[in-house]
Design a protein around this nucleic acid. Sequence first.
DNA 1: TTGTAAGCGTTATCAG
DNA 2: CTGATAACGCTTACAA
Lengths: 340, 340
Amino acid sequence: MPAYGRSAEGSGGVRMRDVAERAGVSRMTVSRALNEPDKVKPKLRRQVLEAVESLGYVHNHLARSLSSKRSNVIGLVLPSLENSIFALTVKGISDVLRPAGYQLMLTESADDPEDEERVISSFLAQRVGGLILHATTHSPTALRMLRASGTPVVENGDLPEEPVDMVVSYSNRGAAKAMTMHLARLGYRKIAFAGLARNPRANERQRGYLEALVELGHGDEPKRLIDVSRGFGGGAEAVAYIAANLPDTDALFCAGDVLAVGALFECKRRDWDVPGRLAIASFDDLDLMRHVIPAITSLRLERYEIGRRSAEMLLAQINNGDVPIRTIDLGYEIVQRASA
Amino acid sequence: MPAYGRSAEGSGGVRMRDVAERAGVSRMTVSRALNEPDKVKPKLRRQVLEAVESLGYVHNHLARSLSSKRSNVIGLVLPSLENSIFALTVKGISDVLRPAGYQLMLTESADDPEDEERVISSFLAQRVGGLILHATTHSPTALRMLRASGTPVVENGDLPEEPVDMVVSYSNRGAAKAMTMHLARLGYRKIAFAGLARNPRANERQRGYLEALVELGHGDEPKRLIDVSRGFGGGAEAVAYIAANLPDTDALFCAGDVLAVGALFECKRRDWDVPGRLAIASFDDLDLMRHVIPAITSLRLERYEIGRRSAEMLLAQINNGDVPIRTIDLGYEIVQRASA
DNA sequence: TTGTAAGCGTTATCAG
DNA sequence: CTGATAACGCTTACAA
């Protein structure tokens, strides 16, 4: 037996030919009535639709895609579902895809190259019509597979130097640099940075932070880089580390919102005034940021637009095959709040 | 042209027959080497795998599923991706599915029957091998489609009276009732309930809350039901409503964690002591609950287990077709913290 | 506008 | 253990 198991014999086993018989037309007329209704006379169309209804026929997309070499499925690879920041991007994608008759297939793949490879390979085996990847670092094998497949791809998580195909994103490096400069402008002088070591996007953010320090003339001062674990606990770790090892730090820039909130709570526990004792700034702009007390200064990214534009580009590529502008930088915005 | 557009011609256009030629075997041997390696002599198997590798062949699951009437894709319908509570369930599902060679297709469908119908129909058209639905209320059409398809289904969001097929869940009603009784046991007498009006699961929670009040002998007192909007803002609305209309309320039970946190923040803004002025309890147990100050008393559900067991049941049904116990109640646990 | 015939790329089946 | 052949259910291409 194969690795995969038995499944339904397809909805009730009603095929297009059954519908055709019932409606008194040929299979092709049924096919047309379903896919290109305009090409079938209203009367026959009605007959077909009635037959479909009464037989409970469900169009077989497997057969359709195999035969037509087209697919109405778009694959999306997200780094994680735990982080609700992606929800907006998914919504942006869906809002474009759905009216166009496409369906979104979503998979998560921790920022692990092997995992991504497996997921991409699976999507390609499924012959998806296009792929949206919320990641810009891929294994050589993954790259080879993607290129060989000829499948349209949009990358999302960052602005890569060598895109696979199309890109809709913002610059993690640029955004982090801007926020660091912003903190400096607010008067903070000893700015620390906390992030997850294993995340490529967090790494880029760290680079941006370091670039800003150099530009500010703090390049020679001892580094204030803090590697933390994920979740709220990571933010607490950062504050604890500052208390123990970098007590003169006056601002903490967190590579993610959850870290920032964790840091804020830890400050409260230690009775540290925010931003008096320690200012806090973060990346992304979860709804939570403006509700905590004090509200946290953060970087807002166009999460919804990223999704919408990605889907639009993908469809344009699939349908016209001609997308002149293949990289879109949607930028970022600093949202100034009470925490810094 | 069809509603859906052009797509890749399938990875490089390399077919199984090309692999077969290259390896000097028949297509069937290639098929076996890929699906049931044990049934092919090591030597031929190696030849095939080498040919696959050198040609960059990607197995066409469309054709495989069409021909075999099996599918290695499982569809999952979640109410929303904004709520990270589902991340754990997804992980539980993936952990079972992946090693079994299955792939998860995820879609979101707000608790809107029409939307769910469209999504289910799409999955059935895709001829998925099984379906996991995080919802227990379905439109008649959806039910008919599901039943007619014969596709194995697991429902997750609640314990329905008339399951479609299999169920792995907890009782929203039971859990809410238990929490309300718990609050009463802690000495609270004027317990309010806040939830989203349009959510079937929140409705069941409300029922449980009301049942508890009756059992406590508070059935005749004026109701303290508060309909709020979603997000942190909803929690704030609840507190504002209490301040304006139900000032003697001593405890607030929120149908969701985000509401509870929003309520907590609003209390702080109003300088209300929690739990002194108002106790707060919530449903689900997001990580955030134990990090806010004060930490919030909540109901913990086996989110990971729900996913794991659902996937296991589904696979058992697909492979053996014999799953004696078709409904699993995983219960809930009250996590007592400082907020109540 | 509708129909006919020949695939799409794989696997089930049965023979060797 | 391996191979030949006929599906799987649909659409393309062409003919009427």
